[in-house]
Design a binder for these strands. Structure first.
Lengths: 205, 205
DNA sequence: TTGCAAACTAAACACTGTTTATTATATTTA
DNA sequence: TAAATATAATAAACAGTGTTTAGTTTGCAA
């Protein structure tokens, strides 16, 4: 029965073809301009064909969102080379900010868009890749706690607090709310705030 | 020449009519479902008429975003009754979180949507209402600094840091990223994280 | 009352995501 | 191998979007 296996393989090939085109268009032209028709044009199939391989547009965004998390995890790899847990935390935050600023489209996909979450809503397997990245943060925070940081608090709250800060910072930037300030030295402002935050964590033992 | 004044008055009435309908639909049905046609239907005018009073949809969102900031400022009023600057900061954060959770649509308008910012882009008068709210935070932070908090940092960085944290926290919640956690006691998690953050600020002198 | 400008709209344009009915292709059965 | 069936792909339509254009109605001034 090698024939149904070939069919399955062809199906996965087609899904990959769609996702590659979608990712390319997505990164080139942004979220808004990535329509089903544009994806269909890119792979030279009709728009209706895409619906034979993905339930709806949300599912495509969900799949891309999984890919984006893989590249984020890849970006985080260097932290494992660092030994001191606090230095790990500092570097993790730095890499997070860097990735967000350099890949606004992917950041949007991972943490800002509602579509991938809607696709996830009707699914039993939940947000695996997101969990892994948050797990890494929690692991590092547990290390920090063993070294005396974040004392008398649960690691989950500490991790959420750190993530909230960094996520908020990059979101304020990405969504143009730094227009609030008179000049536009946004990146410097981000750096100044981040070093303040790190010192706050440090001073609180 | 009272006639041109009446014309101006009628024009403003019409803009208010459109904005009121837009706000109502926006709060009832969310961002997605608030179309120009829906607004036009609500006020019993043709869709094209709306374009005689607003350049495009972004301008409507910008106007609504200004109104939303007014209600946020109103929500912040109780903090002025508090004397201790640190207690002011704690209450401000609490009110911010409360407002965001209770008015997700308005929060989206003020801090998450791109549309109002695009309308603002081609404007000389910039983000007044946003500046006022941030100004209040900076004022309180300056008070806190006089009392020994956030030492040896500029108030702007300190304000951005606090705002980033709270904004990040509510955004993670509003955009469904707390599905990351196994149970869904989101509000309790928000409270736990917020009290941790406050303690971090407190411990750092 | 005529002339003009402002207010308003019907209809169209160029899109969007998605579904349906139909055709072409591949596989299975008789 | 020939007929029947299942699969893959699509053209066309549906219902919606923001926005523009061309044309009509209305109110005011000369």
């Amino acid at each position: 029965m090698g024939i149904s296996e070939r069919k399955e393989r062809e199906r996965e090939d087609m899904q990959r073809l769609i996702l590659n085109a979608a990712r390319k268009l997505f990164l080139e032209n942004g979220v808004e301009k990535t329509s089903i028709r544009a994806i269909a044009d890119a792979i030279e199939y009709s728009p209706a064909t895409i619906y034979l391989y993905f339930k709806d547009k949300n599912e495509i965004f969900y799949a891309l969102h999984e890919l984006a998390f893989l590249t984020l995890a890849e970006h985080f790899r260097p932290v494992s080379l660092i030994k001191d847990p606090f230095a790990q935390l500092v570097e993790l935050g730095h890499l997070y900010i860097q990735w967000a600023v350099e890949n606004p489209g992917l950041y949007e996909l991972c943490f800002l868009m509602e579509s991938p979450m809607e696709a996830l809503a009707c699914r039993d397997e939940s947000w695996e890749h997101g969990k892994n990245s948050f797990g890494l943060l929690m692991h590092i925070i547990e290390g920090c706690m063993a070294a005396g940081y974040f004392k008398q608090h649960d690691p989950e709250s500490a991790a959420l607090t750190v993530w909230s800060y960094i996520h908020g910072l990059v979101t304020i930037f990405l969504r143009g709310r730094m227009k609030l300030f008179d000049d536009d030295r946004d990146i410097e402002r981000i750096k100044a705030s981040y070093s303040l935050f790190i010192k706050m964590v440090q001073h609180g033992l």
